[in-house]
Design a protein around this nucleic acid. Structure first.
Lengths: 336, 336
DNA sequence: GTGAAAGCGCTAACAG
DNA sequence: CTGTTAGCGCTTTCAC
């Protein structure tokens, strides 16, 4: 199939390519008559410009890449969707890039930076760990959403997140307050300095405030998928049946844990309370409805974009903004 | 930040751009020595080629665009993920494109075709309706996954889907067989000729086989989101409390319906059985576990790619393949 | 084996 | 207002 270029359109409309280009870019300096003629021809020919050529030429043009780690994560998907809403008409357009959960987002970022000449980067769902040095070469405005980079080797990058430590602390306190003492925590790797590690610290804080501490063996490491959480919970609760509450570092994990509990004949929340983090939509429709630390998706999206814009437009330094989160107690945690 | 081009690399390695390009493309005609030198320089400089320039030059190169309608649909996400696994190394690379649920995927397809010179198209989750004429201009190998285009104006495009009509019929029969008679159907618009319409037909089939028919008023139209399904179910069951089973045209809808039923004080499946379609992962962990018509995601992905490849490589005609689906009865439907 | 040079389709000075 | 022209970074003949 032969595809039209602006040259074809120009010819057919009896004008120069420049004029067509101008019309294409809504430049003001084209007479109404010409403009209409060109537009008509374009419509008739179903013309759509070649993005590659355009991108090549305007390699300097602003464009921000949003890198989402994990296609199957409902929280991140929702956040990404929200992020897209923030793309302002006059500003740099957003390009959403989903990458594999196992993939190296920093390597990917590098690729994008160079290969598509992104001029700004937003990371959703990134972990901050050793690999992050891979990105040292990238000297672009970057913001990490949902994790803080404060006090990490990545501090050059901005970040927008809730106060993971405080919220985890608050979550555990809520559980403690409701009489739960044998609390299990379902999280990820505690190494590193990202939100998972901070949440683990927050958990400790809560226990310390009461002169207690998280019993060793009640911290369960799991990948953040339904199946892994389910399996992990099954084997954990068989081993520690006296556990009476579970704090999960993601709603998905919490949902898997609930299913496991029910399969073990435990009732939620009568026998065991379950509390998640994120505030995904499913949590409002699950049985029981999931109690959770709800992250303010809209606010995170808006702030991330705002901070990035600042950095891109006025070369502002990295900032670390903390957004307010809220503990939402629904049915999966028993009443006080 | 100044970004290296192959020219910079060439200079630094003391060779010509041509040579660098050759190395970049793994051409055989470069001496080992030169090759290694160039590679070393590229590594040191963290070089990554400019995709735009490459794409522009090789506008002819194969590339298939996978258009997924809806970022928040777990079934489609899983299918997309599976699709990506099918991208063979030597073949055309895949570009995943998520578009808004409300967006016009046909218009989008057109854009992609032209703007990124896609040479093949796969649609996930498309509806086949009047708008489809928009795509008449596109004369590219296309395959629709999860809907059949057989007997539609889109028949020029291939399709890979389960036998929606037969499966819906089978689903209803299973319900009938378990003694349910007051069955409600939660679906979408019955107009059109896509899977939703076929499923509606299948439902009728099942009733007709028994000399019955779906009572008017028990077909509930809803958008395929948790919240819409929930609201729709709430108001429907208040109106028709004698209904004892719900067949939902998506698992997400089924999950919303279950929640609504429970909120109305009905037990699932003791009072009302609920049956979905798709076979999303959540259905294996929900309470109760969701009975569903499970679509064979892997097979749909593989077949779609196979059919597309056929069309692209040997100009084969459109084919309509039917993949086997299976009724998975779990906890949300009561025993016979 | 390697390099020089001609564009891919588009945009952006710079002239008219 | 409109057209001419020079590339953007890369691939690809075609010579050497």
């Amino acid at each position: 199939m032969k595809i039209d270029t602006i040259r074809d359109i120009a010819e057919r409309a009896g004008v120069s390519v420049t004029t067509v280009s101008r019309v294409l870019n809504n430049r003001p300096d084209v007479s109404r008559a010409t403009q209409e003629k060109v537009r008509r021809v374009m419509k008739e020919s179903h013309f759509v410009g070649n993005a590659n050529a355009r991108g090549l030429k305007r390699a300097d043009q602003e464009m921000v890449a949003v890198i989402v780690r994990g296609r199957q994560n409902p929280f991140l998907s929702a956040l990404a969707e929200e992020m897209l809403q923030c793309a302002a008409p006059g500003k740099a357009p957003f390009a959403l890039e989903y990458i594999d959960e196992q993939a190296d987002e920093f390597h990917h970022a590098l690729m994008l930076t160079h290969s598509r000449r992104a001029s700004g980067l937003i990371f959703l769902g990134s972990r901050i760990d050793d690999r992050c040095h891979a990105i040292d070469g990238v000297n672009l405005p970057m913001v990490f959403a949902t994790v803080t980079t404060q006090g990490t080797p990545m501090a050059r990058a901005s970040s927008v997140s809730m106060d993971d430590r405080a919220m985890a602390c608050q979550a555990i306190e809520a559980l403690l307050q409701r009489g739960h003492e044998k609390i299990a925590v379902f999280g990820g790797d505690r190494q590193g300095t990202d939100s998972l590690a901070l949440r683990a610290l927050g958990v400790e804080d809560a226990f310390h405030h009461r002169g207690m501490q998280l019993e060793e063996g009640r911290y369960v490491e799991t990948r953040f998928t339904l199946s892994d959480a389910y399996e992990a919970a099954l084997s954990f609760f068989r081993r520690c049946p006296d556990t009476d509450a579970a704090f999960c570092m993601s709603d998905t994990v919490a949902l898997g844990v609930i299913r496991a509990l029910v399969d073990l004949g435990r009732r939620v929340p009568q026998d065991v309370s379950v509390l998640g983090i994120d505030g995904i939509e499913m949590g409002r429709y699950s049985l029981p409805r999931l109690s959770t630390v709800a992250q303010p998706i809209g606010k995170i999206a808006r702030e991330s974009v705002a901070v990035l814009t600042e950095m891109m437009e006025s070369g502002a330094h990295a900032r670390h903004v903390t957004v307010p989160a809220s503990l939402v107690l629904r049915e999966s945690v028993r009443e006080a």
